[in-house]
Write a protein that binds this DNA or RNA. Structure first.
Ligand code: MN
Ligand code: MN
Ligand code: ZN
Ligand code: ZN
Lengths: 125, 125
DNA sequence: ACTTGACTTGGATTGAGTCCAACGTAGGAT
DNA sequence: ATCCTACGTTGGACTCAATCCAAGTCAAGT
């Protein structure tokens, strides 16, 4: 556990945010100015493979890192500004996929992404 | 309607494939060797905004272009090799998102991505 | 003190996609 | 028939996120 890893973990701690690697780097650098982008990427990658943080890739923009790995949830994404909210829809989409639609795959996970415009972007449009 | 647009449309015609822009370019260039990547991107972009073709972005790799825009469907993606199958799950995930989970967003679309291993990759693992 | 190994760094590199100025060409105007 | 114009195409430069890598730093163990 180095100082660099600690500040990255601190940045992601607590609130349900969905930060890009650059945003994590900016916030980490506020506490530890000499931290490099490479280290932020390395540390985020480790947290992801430990299952502590989820990667959310909603489009061709930067991936977002989600510390809310404990409770399963899905995402509502604004097509305008890219902002993300956690959502907990009813229903179980895994159960909605019949065997006849699985083609012999071992289906382990399902990801549901709602898209639309946030109030802010809807007002501008 | 130019020769370039026609070959791009032909490449996407018919089968339920999910080709990357580069794959479309390669197949188009087999029929019209001087076609440029820029024109393939331009034409794909036009087909997408006409609603004739869907963009599918399952990860940080290249977007895939899906000519099966007529019947709504979702995707089953192999985590091993990246191959994609069309699936038609039961249920309506849009209806599963209550107003209290919409945060004032104008929700227009939902995308469901099942992940797992195809029979081939499961055998290897 | 010396060695070892793990971690960090900044810069180079990659990959997908976009941008843009120059070019070619088909159709219409004169 | 010639000229003009608008549109489509081209290739290369460029962007942006992410990864790679060789060199540097540091702490622990001997
Ligand atoms: Mn989340
Ligand atoms: Mn499809
Ligand atoms: Zn927005
Ligand atoms: Zn596979």
């Amino acid at each position: 556990m180095t100082a660099q890893r600690r500040v990255v973990a601190e940045v992601l701690d607590g609130e349900h945010v969905h930060l890009t690697a650059d945003e994590v780097h900016a916030r980490a650098a506020a506490k530890l100015p000499e931290i490099s982008r490479a280290t932020v990427y390395n540390t985020l990658g480790e947290l992801v493979s430990l299952g502590e943080v989820l990667e959310v890739a909603t489009d061709r923009r930067a991936k977002r890192y989600d510390p809310n790995a404990h409770r399963p949830h899905h995402h509502l994404v604004c097509a305008g500004c890219g902002s993300i909210r956690d959502v907990h829809p009813a229903g179980n989409p895994l159960a909605d996929l019949p065997d006849s639609e699985r083609f012999g795959f071992t289906v382990s996970d399902v990801e549901v992404t709602y898209r639309g415009l946030c109030p802010n972007c809807a007002a501008k449009a």
